[in-house]
């Protein structure tokens, strides 16, 4: 059966599904928002960390899933945001000023790293971001006067909202969750705009997109830089959540985990990062008894996933549906 017929069949099954899906999403979000009421403070911390990581992985999904580029440096931007926040918040600068500044800095740095790489060949971005992450990590570790070296920066203050303190774990969780939802909604809006649809066009068929007048390099570069800015914002929340910033969470290995999270969830799927972030943030905590074996299994599972299910976890129902139509 032709691809068009597949699409029609999918669209037909999708329309009523869409409303159910929206309701389901709303229920999941509300349930997640109420979940920490049942948890101890460590559980709440993990839920907050999940939200923070989600901001970074959603940004990365723009780069990887929609612009079709490999970025191995998301943790570097995450770290830049966190260090800017740690230094500025300790100096007494307002959280609400630090947030856009970190985003803009990461955006600009993203342009500077992405430009030379994307000008050549698109998979060079993977190498450039990999090296960039190594370099940023070295700066964090070695520039003790600014970053505190391996001792890091401690005592980062949490922000207030309309005069209300967000020092409590629950209050900060809800604050972070709200920010995450706003960021995700903004990205959703961006992807639905004509400007965002160009992203999908260039991923699916770059040469056709170019012949339709889309400047591939500019769009890819912007997708990458916006993704980097999201990581910067995530970093600011991370600094405020942990209240302590050191180089370790921003190692290249963290970038790799974020990239693989996107792939595991299903790259280019709007809710892919949610699944992927569960796998890299929450699952290791539940499976703590497995210790380092978790990562070993995770690594080989990614290889197996690429071989048997390259579309990621979220492609399972679709595969199922297509199988039915084909029959």
């Amino acid at each position: 059966m032709s691809v068009v017929a597949d699409d029609v069949a999918l669209a037909r099954t999708r329309r009523p599904l869409l409303r159910t899906a929206n309701i389901a999403i709303a229920i999941v979000v509300v349930a997640f928002a109420l979940l920490p009421l049942l948890l101890k403070s460590y559980g709440t911390y993990l839920c907050t960390l999940f939200c923070v990581t989600l901001m970074a992985t959603y940004g990365l999904n723009l780069t990887v899933g929609y612009a079709g580029q490999m970025s191995l440096g998301q943790a570097a931007f995450y770290g830049i945001g966190a260090y800017i926040a740690a230094i500025a918040l300790k100096a007494g600068i307002s959280f609400y000023l630090v947030l856009p500044v970190a985003a803009i800095v990461c955006f600009v740095v993203g342009l500077l790293i992405g430009f030379p790489a994307l000008r050549v060949q698109h998979h060079y971005l993977a190498f450039a971001t990999l090296g960039f992450n190594i370099l940023v990590y070295l700066v964090m570790r070695n520039e003790e006067k600014i970053t505190g070296g391996t001792y890091g920066i401690s005592g980062v203050p949490r922000p207030t909202l309309f005069g209300l303190s967000l020092d409590g774990v629950l209050a900060f969780f809800w604050f972070t969750l709200a920010a995450t939802l706003i960021l995700i909604a903004l990205l959703g809006w961006l992807l639905r705009s004509p400007w965002g649809r160009a992203f999908a066009a260039l991923r699916d068929n770059p040469i056709r997109a170019e012949s339709l007048g889309i400047n591939i390099t500019v769009y890819t570069l912007l997708a990458f830089a916006i993704g980097a800015a999201c990581a910067g914002i995530a970093g600011v929340f991370f600094a405020a959540l942990v209240q302590f910033v050191e180089p370790a969470p921003f190692h290249f290995a963290a970038s790799l985990m974020m990239l693989l999270a996107i792939i595991v969830g299903g790259s280019g799927r709007f809710f892919g990062p949610v699944i992927g972030t569960v796998v890299i943030v929450l699952l290791p905590e539940w499976l703590r008894f497995m210790q380092n074996w978790y990562l070993a299994i995770f690594g080989f599972a990614v290889v197996a996933l690429m071989i048997w299910l390259p579309g990621g976890v979220l492609s399972i129902p679709e595969r199922f549906a297509l199988g039915k139509v084909r029959r």
């Binding site: 790799l256 693989l260 070993a296 080989f300 599972a301 990614v302 290889v303 690429m306």
Partner: peptide
């Protein structure tokens, strides 16, 4: 896959 293999 090679990134996964590297971690694995």
């Amino acid at each position: 896959a090679s990134l996964g293999l590297s971690i694995g």
